[in-house]
Design a binder for these strands. Structure first.
Length: 299
DNA sequence: AGCAACGTTAAA
DNA sequence: TTTAACGTTGCT
């Protein structure tokens, strides 16, 4: 157990140990936990659109096919923003889902159920017509992604840059692909939880099974009933950014039995109880997208 | 509240 | 299959 406790000081000097109590751990950082990058899954998707982009009230809905069969402009290679995106959301991926539910299907089902009108919002709408101008914003973002790939640097502050500003929450593996998603959607759309899965009240029993995104389980959203999915580290807080275990705290010392991450690396978000004070920090205060009627659109 | 232990989930 | 670590429970 204690065999690997003492590590060369050099190992430590290179480790970017953000904050944490300037505790003994600094002196005993283990080389066993190398400069372990954040799990890619902690990184946020930077899919260019949030669902709110596709949703608007009374305007004529854009043909779903427009979404399903991406325009050339949409078919860019790109995954903006992050050096190592969890997964490049290639377009083909967008249509195939591990749950077997096709995105096209899902969209159609939602629309039939009257839950979803897929259409770009005004800003987006105007630019969609003008093909040349539309990609401008996205290109800028994509440039970031390309930069990440090119420079191979990866874990700079750049990565986190967007996180605080985004108003919508990425609903990651929605339909097996990256799908920006606002959790507020669920209650508004009448989604219900059952057996650890969300589903639409307006859909059949099968419909949305398995669409629950990790890290956004009902439990983690403050739901009362018992989704047991694990929340994930935010990847942004100081403890999350910490790269070394202290090997001194009880969690480190008791890792074999305790199964707990180093105390100084325990994500601040995960310390909070789901639904507890401050938990909404990950959930937009105001729904950025609206389903089910214009009445909610401009309070 | 903090800790220890264990079950469990999710990723590698 | 292995490993990391979140969730839960029981104890102090």
């Amino acid at each position: 157990d204690s065999a690997d406790r003492h590590t060369p000081a050099s190992a430590m000097s290179t480790a970017v140990d953000i904050a944490g109590p300037s505790s003994p751990d600094q002196a005993h950082s283990s080389a066993k936990i190398p400069n372990e990058p954040l799990r890619p899954s902690l990184k946020r998707s930077s899919h260019p659109y949030s669902l709110s982009h596709y949703i608007s009230s009374p305007s004529p809905a854009v043909d779903v096919k427009g979404l399903i069969q991406p325009s050339p402009a949409q078919q860019r290679p790109a995954q903006p923003g992050h050096a190592k995106p969890r997964r490049a959301p290639s377009w083909p991926d967008m249509w195939e889902s591990p749950s077997g539910l096709h995105l096209a299907h899902a969209a159609e089902l939602l629309m039939r159920a009257g839950l979803l009108a897929l259409t770009p919002t005004t800003a987006e709408q105007s630019s969609l017509g003008a093909q040349s101008s539309q990609p401008a914003k996205r290109e800028a973002t994509e440039a970031k992604g390309a930069k990440g790939d090119g420079e191979g640097g990866g874990s700079g502050p750049d990565e986190e840059e967007e996180d605080s500003s985004g108003c919508s929450t990425d609903f990651q593996p929605f339909l097996g692909a990256w799908f920006p998603f606002n959790p507020a959607l669920f209650p508004l759309a009448g989604f219900q939880m059952g057996g650890g899965h969300w589903r639409s009240a307006a859909m059949g029993a099968e419909g949305m099974e398995g669409l629950v995104a990790e890290g956004y389980s009902p439990g983690s959203l403050g739901g009362s009933s018992g989704g047991r999915r694990k929340r994930k580290r935010c990847g942004e807080c100081v403890p999350c950014r910490r790269q070394t275990n202290c090997e001194q705290c009880s969690s480190c010392r008791n890792r074999k039995r305790g199964h707990q991450i180093c105390k100084y690396r325990k994500c601040e978000e995960l310390k909070r109880k789901p639904g507890g004070p401050g938990f909404e920090s990950r959930v937009p205060r105001r729904p950025a997208l609206l389903l089910g009627g214009p009445t909610l659109q401009n309070p």
